[in-house]
Design a protein around this nucleic acid. Structure first.
Length: 390
DNA sequence: AATAGAAACAACCGCAGAAAC
DNA sequence: GGTTTCTGCGGTTGTTTCTAT
């Protein structure tokens, strides 16, 4: 499938674009559309290769691009999706309207990755770097479980990738067929939505576990709404936490009052129409504090939105679900260290083999993992933006 | 004020899959 | 069915801007 580089011709300009070149490109595309990128430069009077023109257009000149500082919501979404999808920048960009994959990639590499690393987390795996130390505690089953969970995680991720590809192919088709309020609208974006929401719901779970947050847990109008509320709650959660690391994060990075632009604190808005939420599993595994994504990953529009584990701890949401009921479930399940968390573990196919386990090292480990995910959710509170998303 | 290093950003490179021929 | 071309994607590099000394 070899192909010679398109930009190796002599005489073609490289490097930064000048305003004049931008203007030429813009004017041409506005009048004729881009059509064939290869033929475009000559027609537009540009001494650039087609690829360069395409990149300039898609990453910079396109009118539907939002430039400037990333909002908190955007940052949070990036982190969450990166944890789910890895370096699938285009897939991540699909869930950040008006942002290009290139911009997201750059932002990750220059900001978020460093922040994670600074906090002691591996930006690739999103796990604490000192996990290795924990494994020396003599709890062999812990490391085994971790490996298992990592395998689950990777499996979910790979499945998600495959699904993403499939769904992207079907997306336009689906949209054409979906009427207003149709459930299949969920399908068109089920992957990213469900997975991101799974994370966020997990954040909500943490908040509930900590005894904070609103009383309602309803279908989100959008991922953003969901994110915002969870974010707020997680900040409050951390604000009440004695955790040094997370506290320092807030202290270091957050000087901002979230409440000023999150008026709907603690209240999750009702979903749109008859959308069925793609949640199939919510919570963290009790051992790794890792969001259980397997169920979400395997969700399809034709699946039942509710998948109940044998333990009954695993919960799913759908549009008509009563918020109070779910809240109840969360609260009731979180009486101990994490009733629902363990249930979530069951949900993911892992047994809570040591549900009654106790001990300081284990608690420390749990705390570390919990803090990690808390930190991710709070990682981004250094640069608030008032510009609405989506 | 000058300068070196760091950080941020824009753009390029090359691979790979899809489409066209 | 094979080859060529187009396009998308992710990794990397080069340039510019910022910051500390």
């Amino acid at each position: 499938m070899g192909r010679s580089p398109c930009c190796d011709k002599v005489g073609l300009k490289k490097g930064p674009w000048t305003p004049e070149e931008d203007q030429k490109l813009l004017a041409y595309i506005e009048e004729h559309g881009h059509g064939s990128w290869r033929a475009l430069p000559a027609k537009a009077g540009l001494h650039r290769c087609g690829k360069s023109c395409r990149l300039r257009w898609t990453n910079y000149l396109r009118p539907d691009i939002k430039r400037g500082k990333f909002s908190l919501q955007e940052e949070q979404t990036i982190i969450q999706l990166h944890a789910l999808l890895g370096n699938r920048w285009s897939a991540i960009a699909n869930h950040l309207p008006k942002r290009t994959d290139n911009e997201i990639k750059n932002y990750w590499n220059t900001h978020l990755k460093k922040r994670l690393a600074k906090m002691g987390f591996d930006p690739v795996t999103h796990k604490p770097k000192n996990d290795a130390m924990l494994s020396r505690d003599g709890q062999s089953n812990k490391s085994d479980a971790k490996l298992s969970h990592m395998a689950q995680w990777e499996s979910a991720r790979l499945e998600a990738e495959a699904r993403l590809v499939r769904e992207s192919k079907l997306r336009s088709h689906s949209f054409n067929q979906v009427g207003n309020g149709g459930c299949s609208g969920c399908n068109s974006s089920s992957l990213g939505f469900s997975r991101a929401s799974t994370f966020v719901a997990s954040g909500q779970l943490l908040a509930k576990t900590a005894g904070i947050g609103g009383d309602h847990f309803e279908s989100p109008t959008s991922t953003l709404t969901f994110l915002e509320n969870s974010k707020q709650q997680m900040i409050e959660f951390l604000g009440t936490s004695s955790d040094q690391q997370s506290g320092s994060i807030i202290k270091e990075e957050s000087e901002h009052d979230w409440k000023s632009y999150m008026p709907n604190l603690g209240e999750f808005k009702e979903g749109v129409g008859s959308h069925t939420l793609p949640f199939t599993s919510i919570g963290f595994h009790h051992d790794t504090w890792m969001p259980m994504a397997l169920e979400a990953a395997s969700w399809t529009a034709h699946d039942s939105p509710i998948k109940t584990s044998t333990s009954g701890h695993c919960s799913s949401l759908e549009n008509e679900m009563e918020a109070e009921g779910f809240t109840e479930l969360l609260l009731n399940s979180s009486g101990e260290q994490s009733g629902l968390l363990e249930g979530s573990g069951n949900c993911g196919g892992e047994s809570s083999e040591n549900g009654g386990e106790s001990g300081s090292s284990r608690r420390d480990y749990l705390e570390d993992n919990k803090n990690y995910w808390n930190s991710i959710l709070n990682l981004v509170n250094s640069s608030p933006s008032h510009s609405p998303l989506f």
